[in-house]
Design a protein around this nucleic acid. Structure first.
Lengths: 195, 195
DNA sequence: CGCTAAAATGAACCACCATTCATTTTTCTC
DNA sequence: GAGAAAAATGAATGGTGGTTCATTTTAGCG
């Protein structure tokens, strides 16, 4: 009577993360993931239902990670809206810093699951974006931020900008120090919303 | 002795644009493109070498369009750096306004060709981004823009932000007026770089 | 009007890849 | 140590979809 090997499951996930991040979901081959993990192709299906489940596992875990980071950072007392905005930015940077491959998959590949109607991340996304909206609204109320700002557009714009810059960095993380980028972007973002 | 029908070629391109934009390159099926264009699947290969050539045709045409728009707008005399920056933003907005599907393909799908080493758009991208860099450098020199700005990071950030917002708009163009978004974004961008 | 050559067709072909499964190996329990 | 059951294997299977091609149709030319 054998038991599944947790280390083997981790190896498969680790290989999947690397290959999904570098090649994209569609181009990534199950046979390559198996090879990279050092298991037979058939073994993948002992630990994961199918290719999509593999991707879902990675993304769900990152949503959970994201949620925990938010809880720890934004709830801190005594922060001004600008400091909260900076804290939100730091969450995204830290996500990329800690695991660039997972972060890349998180921002680039989850639409594959959504497109097939397998999962619906909109609730999670809404919650996350609402948090950002609250911060901006608070800043506007206190007179720290420009009251004419369109919060919806601003959120998407900042998200897209961070996405683009961090994506480029993740492709060649050794080229530019992430903290340098972080320092360069914070004033740009704070300026853009300043009153 | 028959001749190829230019209208048929346009129909195929038109269908390809719509389907590539809405489903993405990988998920898009040649059989669906043929069906949508009202031709047999085999006919596609009379007008285009293969699936990749179809995509390349769309993107090349959009690069050409982009180049022409740049020539017409940025070369205008008497513009301040801020006005030039605004003109660059307008080019991107106009591209999406005029043909959302083509614009979406242009920003989302060209990495498929690059990934396979079929084409190299880096020269074109460099030229485009250098133009933006020149505008920012001019603004810094004149004291209009923040001298501490990291031009490279700023460019990517703005591109990514515009990309994200315009992508969302293109998915549901009837939901929000594009000019409203344009008006909302311009001050955000100009503020972000202001001295 | 006849002939030629190219367009057009759409099923067949072929390659690819996710997933399955018959068989072997291994581990856990008694 | 034997037996049972699950892991593990990796080639086979089946499905998908890009591309080809044998045949038919059509249009352009003389």
């Amino acid at each position: 009577m054998r038991k599944k090997d947790p280390e083997k499951q981790e190896a498969i996930l680790h290989s999947a993360v690397r290959i999904f991040a570098h090649q994209g979901y569609h181009v990534a081959k199950m046979s390559k993931i198996a090879e990279d993990a050092g298991v037979a192709a058939g073994s993948l299906y002992l630990y994961f239902k199918n290719k999509e489940s593999l991707l879902e596992e990675v993304i769900d875990a990152t949503w959970e990670d994201m949620r925990r980071r938010y809880e720890h950072s934004i709830q801190a007392e005594g922060l001004s809206p600008a400091q909260k905005l900076v804290a939100l930015i730091d969450i995204v940077f830290d996500l990329f810093m800690d695991d660039p491959d997972r972060a890349i998959i998180f921002v680039n590949e989850q639409h594959h699951l959504e497109q097939k109607g397998i999962v619906d991340f909109s609730t999670k996304k809404e919650m996350l974006l609402n948090l950002g909206a609250q911060v901006i609204q608070e800043g506007v109320s206190r007179g720290d931020f420009d009251p004419h700002i369109d919060i919806m557009i601003f959120k998407e714009f900042i998200f897209g900008g961070l996405h683009q810059v961090l994506n480029l960095w993740a492709l060649q993380p050794e080229q530019v120090d992430l903290d340098k980028i972080r320092k360069a972007l914070k004033p740009i973002i704070l300026n853009s919303i300043a009153k």
